[in-house]
Design a protein around this nucleic acid. Sequence first.
DNA 1: AATGAATGAGCGTTCATTCAT
DNA 2: TATGAATGAACGCTCATTCAT
Lengths: 209, 209, 209, 209
Amino acid sequence: MTNNVSPKVFLCSRMNVQLEHSDKKEAILLSTLDLIGENGFHGSPMSLIAKNAGVAAGTIYHYFPSKEHLIFELYEHIASLIKERMFKDDNASLPYKERFFKLWINLCSFYIQNPNALTFLEQYYSSPFLKCNPSQKHKSFTNEMTRFFDYGIDNNYLKKLDFNFLAPVFHGTILSTAKYHISGRYSFNEESLLNVAQIIWDGIKAHSY
Amino acid sequence: MTNNVSPKVFLCSRMNVQLEHSDKKEAILLSTLDLIGENGFHGSPMSLIAKNAGVAAGTIYHYFPSKEHLIFELYEHIASLIKERMFKDDNASLPYKERFFKLWINLCSFYIQNPNALTFLEQYYSSPFLKCNPSQKHKSFTNEMTRFFDYGIDNNYLKKLDFNFLAPVFHGTILSTAKYHISGRYSFNEESLLNVAQIIWDGIKAHSY
Amino acid sequence: MTNNVSPKVFLCSRMNVQLEHSDKKEAILLSTLDLIGENGFHGSPMSLIAKNAGVAAGTIYHYFPSKEHLIFELYEHIASLIKERMFKDDNASLPYKERFFKLWINLCSFYIQNPNALTFLEQYYSSPFLKCNPSQKHKSFTNEMTRFFDYGIDNNYLKKLDFNFLAPVFHGTILSTAKYHISGRYSFNEESLLNVAQIIWDGIKAHSY
Amino acid sequence: MTNNVSPKVFLCSRMNVQLEHSDKKEAILLSTLDLIGENGFHGSPMSLIAKNAGVAAGTIYHYFPSKEHLIFELYEHIASLIKERMFKDDNASLPYKERFFKLWINLCSFYIQNPNALTFLEQYYSSPFLKCNPSQKHKSFTNEMTRFFDYGIDNNYLKKLDFNFLAPVFHGTILSTAKYHISGRYSFNEESLLNVAQIIWDGIKAHSY
DNA sequence: AATGAATGAGCGTTCATTCAT
DNA sequence: TATGAATGAACGCTCATTCAT
């Protein structure tokens, strides 16, 4: 992995971009991410989030109308971050294969560097939260991916595969790989991540390619 | 999908094998699965599990010493079921590729037919539950998969890939595909599942194959 | 102390006298005494009393209409036992001083040999149980003591003291001494018990005596 | 008795010394004392303690981490109070006999004026609470008494008696007398209390005295 | 007579949220 | 804006008691 900044600092510094209007709000979001990442929703009462953020419990309610909204807003932040990080050095002029590897590695590295973000997302997706919120951020992310895969198919880099086949393959392998790493079962480095991405690439690349 | 029995009945009928000594215990486990599948751990208080199972709250504690144990036991049941279902028609004398497709489809179909089981497992794995229990069932499942992949590599059906690369690819795509289906974003049928499995197969099969 | 039979066996054997019509009832009473002596009322659920007695929970209700009645009946047993033990070798023809020491030592020894009985009584008296039950056994015991003290006063062995002054002095020192012993703060033997009784005797004996 | 202030007000006013930082905390402690005094630990659920104190159930947990801690803190308060009250007008320059009577009467009066405190202590000592906490307060109280008795023996006011004989005699008679009074069997006034104390004094005073 | 599964009211405790300051 | 004491509904769990067998 090229980025060796510590996960929390990294995430924090990115958040500053959007949060600079209030140190407290940022502190609350980070505290929430930390705690949920470590202990899950169960283990993250508002009182602890407040304490961990260095604010009073009531203060959280100046920034977020409820715990549910706080979590939703954190989700949106992380979703933004993910999109930004994933496509940060993407460029349509690069070779397509290289772009694919970049995207795959970027996202997987992000999860590995920010395990709390991954844990949070897993909890978020497997909770009743999502059911009411078909987040705009998520759609935007999906659109970007659709465009990328369509481009690959249209230009004969990829097999003619439905996006709905490609998406789970792409994202599912990334998630599982990152979770494998985080769980400690295997420690991936850049080379081994490339090996996994290569499997996926071999699976989706056009035969002629 | 060939099996069109409703998920709950299916799961129930399999469970009978191990639970026939008590209708109540079975009802409690099924109620737990239903509720956690629908509402998560949060949304499944013991009182509701009891009500949903048609028993009194205290009755649960005749069968399970605590909510944690109830959930763990449910996990073990589902893990057993998964292993059984996945390998149910596997046979070393079949062509390796066919075996691979069978395994992939079996597991993915199980999740699709038992969405509550999938949701439950997702919650279970992303909770603090697993951290203390490196379940025997899970190890046994992993061993079986290791053997299957080793066999494929040794006999030159698969590329020489580390099991730690294969496992996330295999399981990650299955999970994501099933979740895609369950979320309603795309409705997979047997043919489309085969298409996804084909992607993975293309990614891992030996070049010579 | 002359009696060196183990406390439980002793208590048990005495109870047989009154309980021989049913081993189960006896077992339940003894189990109750044991558990309450060890763990208090809190720590003695009916289920545990049953288990400890080797019977089913429901069986207790064949012998006792409720936990409260069970405890009351146990109280009555112990109260009987105490009276019997205390006056067991009393005899109006013995020297009065000797009789006093015998009574004092008999009761104190009983408590020391049956710490569970003492604990039980302490709990019983400091519970809301007594408030409704001005037990007949207790009155009978009190009557006997009144007679003994009146006799001492009438015959000029004792100062002319109100029974209501003598009773707390007599019983209070016995209870405190036994509790001191049981708590382990000091290990009384027959000689040291006599020393304590001597203090009381010195306090109540007639000046002329 | 010289002090005829009502028990609760008296106890309350003394507690103010240590509790003035919070009316609620004081109210909770007093409510606990009242209820346990009346109904025992059993009959004093947190919900009732809260209601009786005029606070919400959850509020108790701002002041005490658990019911066990609440009870322990109440014990410590009462133990402090007892020591303070008992020795409040003691003075080494007074005649020893007078000091003895003062101490005996002070303690007995305290119990009589604060029957809930006595009931509470009885319950506390006969519960599994004490077993883990050989309270500092208790030791300090014991030390003070040891010093007092040693002084009496060294100066030939008292017989040469082991402290372990004197302590149960002293405390046992006080407890029993106060309980006799509280139970309503006999109504002690200052004179009759002195009569009881005189019995003890006659029992322990040096022959030469 | 004896069982023990089943009950459900009630317990100690937690925590999202409010509001007086 | 910020606090944190206060709230009370809801939780996981216990246990005296009942009753079909």
